[in-house]
């Protein structure tokens, strides 16, 4: 059986509202990227027309995601079903410190 390239796979999607009162600031972005890096799937985060690689804290900062922004999480790959709930929780975490529990 031939396995398709991850980009050929229809991604699983979730809309996540930014709950952090400081928005997706630098430390929150890097903490999310660390969680995302634990999965093999291709992970993207969209803010309207802007899109960033979810495994790059630096790229996530280019989303300029302020509090209450609705982001779209897209996860495609072999562990997408396991990743989506974890990443949804991480992206909606009220503070960067809350992401630590997801890294343990």
């Amino acid at each position: 059986m031939e396995i398709g390239h991850p980009s050929d796979v229809t991604p699983l999607r979730a809309t996540v509202k930014v709950q952090n009162p400081r928005g997706l600031h630098m430390r929150a972005a890097f903490a999310f990227a660390k969680v995302a890096g634990r999965f093999r799937s291709n992970i993207k985060v969209r803010n309207d027309s802007k899109i960033a690689d979810g495994k790059s804290g630096t790229r996530l900062m280019t989303l300029g995601a302020t509090p209450e922004t609705e982001l779209v999480l897209e996860v495609a790959g072999e562990d997408a079903e396991a990743a989506l709930p974890v990443l949804t929780k991480a992206l909606g975490a009220p503070s960067a410190d809350d992401l630590r529990s997801l890294l343990d």
């Binding site: 009162p21 400081r22 630096t58 300029g64």
Partner: peptide, 14 residues
């Protein structure tokens, strides 16, 4: 005012 800070981070990265 988190907005201007996030905007500045985005600008510097880009």
């Amino acid at each position: 005012q988190p907005g201007p800070h996030l905007h500045a981070l985005e600008t510097i990265v880009r």
